[in-house]
Amino acid sequence: MRHLVPHLSHGLRCVWRWRGGLCTLLAALLLTLLPSVSAWAKNHWPIAVTLVQGLSFPPASQGLTLNYVTLPLDATAAVFNSVGQKGQTINCTIVQPSVNMLLGAGGTPATQILVDTWAFGGSLLDVIGAGQASFSNVGLINNMRVGATAHVAAANLPGAYVGNVTFRVLYL
């Protein structure tokens, strides 16, 4: 055993000398393992979200500067269902802090309506800026609802305004 000590000591010194390279090696290893980690996570905690309906605001008359609110429990709020790991809690957010609904290409302020102040309800508990819920014992969360506020300006032109929003679900 004793004759191994100098070799071991030398080895450790080499490792220490090349610790920068080791970090690089670990990073490379992590990148290599990414697909495996991803696959493992998907196999163990599959999650799926179904969009039941998008969000719409009540029809309004052009020419007024008003805020129009769709509450989470309103019939026109966005609704989602989800399937995931039973008992797991999820955190739901809207990725964009605000979104412009556009009339046509929406190149001017008169053809844009700002939407913000996302609100969460239904099966989601509204925490600050997010909604949270836990999967049931069969791995379901139904009726996750999202509302928002549309800021209509008097200068907005009449017509159908449309925008796109991203609903993000994250395991806690």
Binding site: F57, A60, F80, G159, A160, V162, N164, V165
Partner: peptide
């Protein structure tokens, strides 16, 4: 998902 509003 989409959001929409009809301005009359």
């Amino acid at each position: 998902f989409t959001i929409g509003m009809q301005l009359m």
